[in-house]
Design a protein around this nucleic acid. Structure first.
Lengths: 216, 216
DNA sequence: AAGTGTGAAGTCTTTCACAGCT
DNA sequence: AGCTGTGAAAGACTTCACACTT
């Protein structure tokens, strides 16, 4: 255990370990080694151990980790014991897809509100007992439903103002799917998911490969 | 210009510069400096210059870059002059959302096929002159429509076999939305987009912040 | 004066390698 | 013998700082 600052990549990997441990527990593995996890994810065992070492000592030397205990510890580290109340702003295709996405509800993320400005969408009922509400009531909704996380799936042009509104309403974190860099106070955490950048960088990698000459 | 290997983060940023330059050109800026771009994205100007320097010299000292020329150069670097024919496998909510996503069609990505195994979905017509076809014809479809990129939006349990099928059919790159690490030959490039990991790591960052004590 | 291109320095992250526990 | 936890070494990436060009 040490008191250093946590590397960003470590955070991402912890989230991956969490899922990996869930799967391993589900398939009946009562104990795991760092190598078990590492092999599953295509990384080095020492990386797994180093990542965990930022937060404490969870294993037993010569033995490994109790799957259940390690999962619990990682859940704690990630803040998965807390309830995360989420609102989605922008009910286009992507917003709708997220509203229905199972992967979130399986974890401790609960979607509490779906907001959009398009009058023709207001009121549309969604499977989850939710319906689409106007963005104008954002601030009230966030207060009343104790929402602490916002998801931005609006068009790029209005993403910044949407983010400002979310921050003003009091959310602590934002997942941003809009293709713009948001300018926000650093009291608010932002996670960017940029789909078209992923496609473009994949295109680059392929081109690089097929275009390369003169490599021994 | 130099012959070193390109850092992964550089690739991602190039894709971001591309969009940034598009916006700048659209808003009438005929020339840009590395600082213009950097400020827009919240990074350092030297980072922008270093990234570009892996590929050549695109600017004029004391002047900056021609927006149009730099955009063209970056397009070339990213392989955006090529036509990317894409198929989406797994027409759940996310697959449907991607099929309708404007951000891709605006670039050089063309969705040529939508595949699913669910008999009740086969044949459903989609806005874009496309309809959902059975995965069994994947190999033919990839050949006939010269598809070089596959998108995986199937459930985690069948993601690996879907990936294998895509590789067997001959795609060069895969965008994987399924929450599993794919095991593939390294002749194939993979880009992972893991939505629930992003939510979890956001939860972590928020927890870290509010939970921290003993910091000067 | 303004702005690029780039070695060199600095920082961050991963991997090694080994002491120490079971 | 097997596996963790962790300093120290290696490697990757970013930032500095300055020569150079317009």
């Amino acid at each position: 255990m040490n008191n250093q600052k946590i590397p960003k990549p470590t955070i991402k990997r912890l989230a991956v370990y969490h899922r990996c441990l869930e799967n391993m527990l589900f398939s009946g593995k009562a104990s795991v080694s760092s190598k078990d996890i590492a092999d599953q994810l295509g990384i080095k065992a020492s990386q797994v151990r180093k990542d965990l070492s930022y937060f404490g000592e969870f294993g037993r030397r010569g033995v490994g980790y109790s799957t259940q205990q390690l999962l619990d510890s990682v859940s704690d580290i990630l803040g998965m014991r807390k309830v995360w109340n989420v609102c989605i702003v922008g009910m286009g295709n992507l917003g709708m897809a997220l509203a229905a996405y199972q992967g979130l509800s399986k974890s401790s993320f609960f979607i509490r509100a779906l907001l959009d400005n398009n009058p023709s969408k207001i009121g549309i009922p969604i499977p989850n007992d939710l319906s689409i509400e106007p963005i104008s009531i954002l601030k009230n909704v966030v207060k009343e439903r104790a929402i602490n996380m916002g998801v931005i799936t609006v068009p790029a042009e209005v993403a910044q103002e949407t983010a400002d509104a979310l921050v003003d309403a009091g959310v602590q974190g934002i997942v941003n799917f809009a293709p713009v860099r948001l300018n926000l106070p650093d009291s608010v955490n932002v996670e960017e998911i940029d789909i078209s950048v992923s496609f473009r960088s994949l295109a680059f990698s392929i081109s690089l490969r097929s275009g390369r000459r003169r490599r021994e």
